[in-house]
Structure formats: C-alpha cells, structure tokens
C-alpha cells in the first residue's frame, strides 16, 4: 500500500543529483539553482549555476532574488526550447518578508519546481509526472517547497514570492 505511492516509472536517480543538491542546500551554498532532466531513463543534473555564473551585483534580499530568478527562468526557457520540454529544478530563493512582531526578516528557502508545459509531448509529461516522487524522495522533501508549473505566468517571480510570503508571513 505504501509502496504504490512512489514512482513506478522505473526511472532511476543518478547519485550526482543528491550530491549536487547538497552543494546548494548545505555548507557554503555554492549553487543558486540546479536544473535536472530525464535522460536514458535516469534523472541527471543538466546544469548547476553558481552566484558568480549569474553575475548579479545587487543584493538578493533587497529585490527578493528578482534578478536571479529572471535569469533562471530565461535559462529554463532556453533549455526547454521555449517551453516544449519538461524539467525539474531547484532554486535557492532569498527574499525579505515582513512578519507580525518581527519586522522585516531575511529568508532563504529552497523551492522545487516541476515544469510540465502544455507544449511538451504527452509522453514526456507522463514520464516527468510519474518520476517526480523519486527525485523528490531522494532529495529529501522535508525542508523544501514544491511547486508544479505549466506555463510562464505561473513561474513569474511575483507569483512565487507571494506564495512564499503567504506561507512564511505569519509564523
């Protein structure tokens, strides 16, 4: 009963997925975002981008990662050939939000995006949807936020930021 909850697509998760993710989530937090794809029935790292690679000079907390996120979305768009393919991605979202009694506080949250655009083939969407639990389980979903997005509007910076502030504003 518990078992059918998980991926049954037979897609494996490459060990690099977990070790690259650790470089984003722990220690020096080397990476800002990572894009994963399914290749030859295996989830692999497609690209891992550092703060330097992004080349952003401004403070991430001030603009709530807007500049970095725009670059991430542009990269994702280019890699999926204008949203005609699916991807998984994790993004280290740095933002400022005001909390009752605590004033403005700087926050740092990792978001997991499952991108399944309408333009992608049905087969691809099926494979990505059925393998999502496998990659999420191996990343350890306890501390990350998950979003499923299917078009550019859902991936807008404002949309995500409002979801995050909604979640963290009052606790």
């Amino acid at each position: 009963m518990l078992r059918c909850r998980l991926s049954t697509s037979g897609v494996l998760v490459n060990p690099d997925v977990q070790s690259t993710f650790m470089k984003l989530s722990e220690g020096k937090k080397e990476f800002r975002y990572i894009i994963f794809k399914i290749e030859d029935r295996e989830v692999v790292v497609e690209s891992a981008v550092t703060q330097e690679d992004l080349g952003i000079s401004g403070d991430d907390y001030e603009d709530s990662s807007k500049a970095a996120f725009e670059k991430f979305v542009a990269d994702l768009k280019a890699r999926t050939d204008g949203y005609s393919d699916c991807r998984y991605a994790v993004f280290d979202f740095k933002f400022t939000c005001s909390r009752v009694g605590a004033g403005a506080s700087k926050m740092d949250k990792i978001v997991f995006l499952q991108l399944c655009p309408d333009g992608a083939s049905i087969k691809k969407k099926m494979v990505y949807a059925s393998s999502a639990s496998a990659i999420k389980a191996s990343l350890g979903t306890g501390k990350i936020l998950q979003f499923q997005v299917s078009d550019e509007s859902e991936m807008s910076h404002k949309e995500l930021l409002s979801k995050l502030t909604e979640k963290y504003a009052d606790n």
């Binding site: 518990l2 991926s7 977990q18 639990s133 990659i135 389980a137």
Partner: peptide, 28 residues
C-alpha cells in the same frame, strides 16, 4: 524504514540530536 518524507535518520543516542542526513534513495 518506510517513512513519508524521509526514509531514515541518524542521531546521537543520548540527546536525540541529528547527526547527518540520510536522503539520497528514492524509496523506503
């Protein structure tokens, strides 16, 4: 074991403090 959000944990026995992270496998 068969957890929902994680499948394992490593901790110090006297305090229960976490001593690492056992994520990396996608099933129980």
């Amino acid at each position: 074991g068969e957890g929902k959000d994680r499948f394992g944990h490593v901790f110090l026995f006297d305090t229960g403090t976490s001593n690492g992270n056992l994520s990396g496998q996608s099933r129980p």
